[in-house]
Amino acid sequence: MFAAFLSTVCGSLLGICVTCLSAFAVTLIFRTSTTANFAQASIAAFGCYVVADCLNNRGIPVYIGVFIGMAIGVAIGLFIDLLVFRKGRYINELGKQIITMGFVSLFFGGTPLVFGNPEFIPFESFYNTTKAGTDSNIVINAFGGEIVFTKHALICTAITVVVLGTIFILLKVSKWGLGVRTTASSEFTAELMGIDTHVITAISWALACALGVLAAVMYAGGGAMISASFMAIIQVNAFLACILGGFSTFYGSVVGAILIPVITNCVGFLANFPAFHNISRWQLVIVYLLLMIVILIKPQGLFGKKVVKKV
């Protein structure tokens, strides 16, 4: 029984990676430009289509294809920040968020137009394209049962740890990281201190969109069928992870993004007990309700700090 439980938890590994990348992307954009990027899923899906196109139609090897996709993501992010946000007049925070929503529609309509409207494309996982013909799962025998990992999930975990780890180290020690943290604290003051906030926000957008594409590729490789909106559920989970962890820190959303898939799978695991056998229908509802309760207890998130305005 315990082995089955562990197996379920480890099965959420891919979900953890994908949600972590997306949640960190959302937090990065939110903290540096005070905008909630509602277009995260749409941009990620578009990038994923690009990668699928490279892999399936042009025979480009998978890792190069992924880099191309991420480069497209970077281009889109830079476009949004440098051309759209800077060129507009009097754009305030709410305006930026509405613009991201406009991009949702734009990509939602544009993706099928550009890629000839195939709705659901299968996507090959990282594992299959590296080594054909061998078993795609790794099985560990422990605790009286089998714990199954897919190799794809393990590769993704490794990639995520390296990518996020590097970013966090850079945030802490590099000059760019200092700039990001200062801009996140107060854009106006950062500008006065000589930090080029325009560059910081542009890099943040580019990075966030690239991470989104990476997450989409991982998710697709794990067996999801691609469509223009297949990342929507991930985006909702990413947003919830951000408020669970709190927007005051960068690591808060990552912690939230680890918790949500694990809790979802744990709730799903309860289906093994005869009393809760119907629970898979209500899985998401229960998880979201639990989240609501936690957030009501800690309104600023698990790691958030409350700011009281002086009267």
Partner: peptide, 17 residues
């Protein structure tokens, strides 16, 4: 799909300008 795109474009332009 074109209409969806146009809607998105319109939202972006109106908010920008």
């Amino acid at each position: 799909a074109f209409i969806t795109m146009l809607t998105g474009l319109m939202i972006i332009l109106i908010v920008m300008f």
